[in-house]
Design a protein around this nucleic acid. Sequence first.
DNA 1: GCGTTTTCTGCAATCGATTGCAAAATTGAT
DNA 2: ATCAATTTTGCAATCGATTGCAGAAAACGC
Lengths: 336, 336
Amino acid sequence: MTAPSIGNLADLARIAGVSTSTVSRALADSPLISEKTRTRIAELAREHGFQLNQVARNLRLGRTQAIAVVLPLGDESAQHVSDPFIMTLLGFLADALTERGYDLLLTRIVPADDKWLDRLTISGRVDGVIVIGQSDQRAVLDRTAARYLPLVVWGEAGIGQKHCAIGTDNREGGRLATAHLLGLGRRRIAFLGNPAAPEIGARHAGYLAALAGAGVTAEPSLLLPLQLGSEAAFGLTRDFLAAHPDIDGIVAASDVAAMGAIRALSEAGRAVPEAVAVIGYDDVPFAAHTTPPLTTIRQDLGKGAELLVAALFERMAGTATPSVAFAPELVLRASA
Amino acid sequence: MTAPSIGNLADLARIAGVSTSTVSRALADSPLISEKTRTRIAELAREHGFQLNQVARNLRLGRTQAIAVVLPLGDESAQHVSDPFIMTLLGFLADALTERGYDLLLTRIVPADDKWLDRLTISGRVDGVIVIGQSDQRAVLDRTAARYLPLVVWGEAGIGQKHCAIGTDNREGGRLATAHLLGLGRRRIAFLGNPAAPEIGARHAGYLAALAGAGVTAEPSLLLPLQLGSEAAFGLTRDFLAAHPDIDGIVAASDVAAMGAIRALSEAGRAVPEAVAVIGYDDVPFAAHTTPPLTTIRQDLGKGAELLVAALFERMAGTATPSVAFAPELVLRASA
DNA sequence: GCGTTTTCTGCAATCGATTGCAAAATTGAT
DNA sequence: ATCAATTTTGCAATCGATTGCAGAAAACGC
């Protein structure tokens, strides 16, 4: 049986026959402590399985060593998001933060009022905040950003926006996707997604730009306004196909939406990609495993998480970092 | 412009012209404080946007009001899991904990030694721990559970196991899945998954039991030992089909695996479900959107999260709760 | 108006660490 | 052996809250 575990630093000090100051310094490798006592105390600590109380430590040091990651469940999101895209980003964030010795406090918020972010920032529970997705909360984000520096947001950097947003260049992504279909000779290309959401709006703008660039007139009727996070892509596409049997391409705003569309096409007897080419967005983990595997626009979330965390730490150190939009890339598989 | 925000309770006390005790009590709705001063102080607090420092509060109260949710990345898991199943459970856990006023500390751990769990439990950062998946860490879990009560694990309740595991009845799930295929008249049914992992082993046992019950002899060669979390289902199934063209059903250990198998079948020109019926496991969010939509065994993760959290809170209160395995259910869609 | 209850408020200790400053112990020089 | 210089240790304040106990104020009875 190993020695009983010790509650706090004072207990350990008593056992070692020294003051708490000495123990604290020894454990912190302070040069004020002789090598002899340092090793003796370190040995005792290990022996008794002692660890500092992080809460007390952080209180004294005026920090928390924790970062809040917020998933706001606003207009666009259903009650229970489990969007694989968001979850993948979350995983990368967890890694990036852990690597830097920070804890990740996961918070899902249904924004009832416009104070949810303030509550979080002044509660003293975290040293910084990462918000995943702007949802319909841009105003709240802007207001808080004016007063609270260590805040970064995954999303689209809009004009006149006050908060630091990091994400991929959605306009470019939409353009890439559409240009790819155009390059395949497709001309009647539908857009599946709701442009009201900031990111999707930008992708739609890219879609329009690509069409214009190829001399194809965009038809408003080829827009399928799918709620983000909704699972209605299948039904929406099925009904749409009845009215527009002549389309030959679909630019989907997410891989999940693309999957729904593919199923609708498949059930309507339209081959993918022969009859209708479908391109997704995100390149989520399962995109390579659908039938057929999805051609899609990849957002490198490993890189995204790195950028988010890097910007956040700069901000925690006092520098107001600018927004970033990095380039997405086309991933060729079989659906287009 | 609103009044400048106040740093701490003492500042607010100064402004109100009372002691910190009074402010603290007023904010806590203590009956020791007169209605008059209580409302006056509450008003001041709102006006100045004051909030208690939670770290200090929790230190004083000897708690953290936070729960660690651990994703151990052991043998079976790739470096970056983003298994939709786990992520869905995580979402529900976040809701269940938030509802009870607790924070969720997300921790991904690659178990390098056998002390990772001890480090977490004695760091004082959390009031309890939920581990998602036993991975290859059963020994560590058992050892810690002997000493640290507020610990619950999502997973299979094995015999002789010391820790509290909560999950679905995997044996029953495997049986259900297999029985369904048998009911469809299928006889040459393959199992796609690695029985070495506890949960999968149980599902495989159920598979064998169902075969035996129907008088079908199980063939060891019909086992496709897919690493859990791996993305190799496609390749594995494709190669397997070459050697075993005669199968007419596949019981997959996860929906993700089922997707890979369906693609392999599709590319081999075998229709699903006509030629080969495929049944998945989990019923993850996208299972309804594959082509064809997956027939699968549903694990109700909302219920699972509720059970995990309920057990954890009982344990935090001092009661050693037993392991629980609740029933999974068959979800009929189109793949089998 | 005065003593007694009852109601309110404040002092000071506490949670478990860190750290500036002063005191003690050690070392070295003479 | 004595004293100065240096190294090592400890006292006590601090981070921002909560709370037992005692004292002040208010309410009450006579």
